[in-house]
């Protein structure tokens, strides 16, 4: 039954007409889809993007394997728990991401970003090699360092490997250069001027180290300040807790089991070497190439101060 009695029943015609229109729509959809992925559209493809020798397609595999979309969004799709990652690379630049990803539980400090710039490949990708030029080029990185530096994040420390971090940054470099047709909309105001923005705390940026050394505080206290400012504490806890690297608490003087099966005493020489050339001795259970070499960034006095700080955190004094 589809029409009133006594009237011509056109139901069959109407249904056929609906199916024909549906067919037209299907053809249109296929045509539009084909036009969406033509080369002439000039959309960036991951096969053409690499970052410091790392591969964007591999990066997409890393992105999926860790289910990043389960907390973040990418092109706006995902879980709304963390910020959208699509344009992040273009905003904060490679050195900030290099500093962030190995120890995602804490926000990078200026020292941590500066350290990444010592790496020629990262500096080349960033297009600058001094921290001041970097912060001028990537104001979002500067804002993050000032407001969040050394604070804890809401993200867990993920045990990403050195390769995974490189690929992941390559993938985000690719998404950052994608044409997303004007999304997300660019804010017209400086959000920091509004009450919704958390007040910037003054504490995470302590006075420059040079000023402190004039007033000879204890060597260990100076070391603690250097360690915080350089970003060491993003990965190393002052307790025995494992963050990204081994905890410093109770470390000094113990016998450290190394990845190659041997043992080494955690004395001044060992700690100094671990700061200057971290890959010389890898502690059992940790991945190599995770920690950058700090020899070029810290002077001998600063390294000695950090060692003194670690010594002060307890352990078996020889």
């Amino acid at each position: 039954m589809s029409c009133a009695p006594g009237e011509p029943c056109e139901e069959g015609v109407k249904r056929r007409r609906a199916l024909i229109v549906l067919g037209i729509m299907g053809a249109l959809f296929i045509a539009l889809s084909a036009a969406s992925f033509l080369d002439s559209r000039n959309q960036v493809v991951p096969a053409t993007v690499s970052y410091a020798g790392y591969d964007a397609i591999e990066g997409k595999r890393v992105f999926q394997a860790w289910n990043c979309m389960g907390c973040h969004t990418i092109v706006g799709n995902g879980a709304y728990f963390g910020p959208d990652l699509t344009k992040l690379y273009g905003k904060v630049g490679p050195a900030w991401m290099e500093a962030f990803l190995p120890s995602a539980g804490a926000w990078p400090t200026s020292g941590a970003v500066q350290l990444q710039l010592q790496n020629a490949a990262v500096a080349a990708e960033a297009g600058v090699d001094s921290i001041d030029a970097y912060l001028a080029k990537y104001p979002a990185a500067a804002e993050r360092i000032t407001r969040r530096g050394a604070h804890a994040t809401l993200m867990p420390n993920l045990p990403l490997s050195r390769e995974e971090i490189g690929h992941l940054i390559a993938f985000l470099k690719y998404t950052s250069s994608m044409n997303t047709e004007g999304w997300p909309p660019k804010p017209r105001v400086d959000g920091l001027a509004f009450a919704q923005a958390a007040p910037t705390s003054a504490s995470p940026q302590p006075a420059p180290i040079a000023a402190q050394s004039a007033e000879p505080a204890s060597e260990a206290a100076r070391g603690a300040a250097v360690a915080r400012d350089t970003g060491c504490t993003a990965c190393h806890a002052s307790s025995t807790q494992r963050l990204v690297g081994p905890g410093w608490g109770g470390l000094y003087g113990t016998e450290v089991a190394l990845a190659d099966g041997s043992k080494a005493p955690a004395d001044d020489a060992y700690l100094t070497e671990s700061i200057v050339a971290p890959d010389a001795k890898i502690v059992a259970g940790f991945a190599p190439h995770m920690m950058p070499a700090y020899g070029t960034m810290l002077d001998e006095g600063e390294i000695a101060a950090i060692v003194a700080y670690i010594r002060s955190l307890g352990g078996e004094h020889p």
Binding site: F81, P184, Q196
Partner: peptide
């Protein structure tokens, strides 16, 4: 409003 209009992207802080 906070994330898009004001452009505040610190999820933990803002």
């Amino acid at each position: 409003f906070v994330y898009r209009t004001l452009g505040l992207d610190w999820f933990g802080g803002d």
